[in-house]
Design a protein around this nucleic acid. Structure first.
Lengths: 221, 221
DNA sequence: AGGTGTACCTACTCACCAGTAGATTACTTG
DNA sequence: CAAGTAATCTACTGGTGAGTAGGTACACCT
């Protein structure tokens, strides 16, 4: 959350283009996340960014281009955060756990990013949703691969690609919407939310109601 | 999905108020679901409804009132569908199963309703999200009660209210977002989607990768 | 210092849309 | 069949916001 720039009067200090572009993007993510695409005005974005509207257009083009650019940037940053968080060469449950922790960690520290990325992008139709769908696709592939790998280490008929992918989609969806839910209940720490989802999707209610809990490896005997 | 009314010219046929109101609401749900709250215009809604704008205002008030009314109507209809679908006096897993089937059944046959209800309402802030949150609260309570009941029949320390409620929230969230995902993959039948979520949340990946599947009672030995 | 290009601004235009005023038509009931 | 009233229309206003035209100041190089 960017602190509101003090009300600017007169000319802004000269800055190199790259720096201004970053400032503008930050402001745009902030405003889009608070107001949504349509209700956000280019006037407000330029004001928050501390510059005038023509700068906005000169640097980042139309409102739609700006929004798409925001989505791409935030999506890339997030996917990198998750990819860096996963520990390969670990058993599937641990990989899933580290991925979930990285995901909720990112969302917790970049609420505006998540808001613009998920809620806004998916509720505007068209090219924006497509942008988002592509990123979700990458996430689903990640999880699906993990699942297939998990079944391969067992001596059961490995799940079909189709089956794995749809389960992965369900899990990714659960993560997305739990993150949305979390936005409205911000008091819980990230680790707790991540651990709840981990237990839900790895153990299932069937186990949980019998008191069987999943623990991270450090707590295993 | 309402078929577009043919382009209307001249006066619409006189109809009693109640009927017109229904037509208008149907049109509003259609347009809101396609375009979102802000991008939807009262002109377009009135056109799809086959009447002129002043009628809209005379019957349903302002744009915001209209939208809120849509949300309330659709939410009520959906909750009733689910409540009617659940079979009480059955074991917890069967109750959950029937609830999921009812939910996905409703979404499948009322895609526009779901879109306006979930995607649109949650991405507009303010009173709309509150309206939605209240309905989600009812759903969460339903599931949480079911969970608490399930643990009570076991001889384990029953989960805390807090724990049960957040797990319920996760499940409801998973359902919401799986429904969203389903909007973009409409080829799957409702039963299949419902069954996937059932397996995921009841059995968990941990069981699924070992080939343990949940079956509805009719297939049990 | 003077020139050159880039960062930056004020002040508009134009389109679109929520909401309304005031007139008009068609059922319905005595 | 004439009121009376409910349903409906056409045609406007006012405000807001995307996008732009045309100009000003600052920094750096020579």
């Amino acid at each position: 959350m960017q602190p509101d720039q003090p009300v600017r009067t007169g000319r802004a200090k000269r800055l190199p283009r790259a720096v201004r572009e970053r400032q503008i993007m930050d402001a745009a993510v902030d405003v889009f996340s608070r107001l949504g695409f349509h209700a956000a005005s280019m006037d407000e974005i330029s004001e928050v960014a501390g510059i005038s509207k023509p700068m906005l257009y000169a640097y980042l083009g139309s409102k739609e281009e700006l929004f798409a650019t925001c989505i791409r940037r935030e999506a890339t940053v997030m996917m990198e955060a998750i990819a860096n968080g996963i520990e390969p060469d670990q058993p599937p449950d641990v990989q899933l756990w580290s991925g979930l922790r990285a995901f909720f960690g990112f969302v917790g520290e970049n609420r505006a990013s998540w808001q613009v990325l998920h809620r806004q992008a998916s509720s505007q139709g068209g090219p924006f949703a497509a942008e988002l769908a592509e990123m979700r696709g990458r996430a689903v592939n990640l999880v699906a691969a993990l699942l297939v790998h998990a079944t391969k280490t067992q001596d059961v008929p490995s799940a079909s690609e189709q089956e794995a992918e749809s389960l992965a989609a369900a899990l990714v969806g659960a993560g997305e919407s739990l993150a949305d839910w979390w936005l409205d209940h911000p008091d819980e720490p990230a680790g707790v939310v991540a651990s709840r989802l981990m237990n839900l999707v790895w153990m299932g209610f069937g186990d949980l109601v019998q008191g069987n809990i999943w623990h991270p490896p450090s707590k295993r005997p």
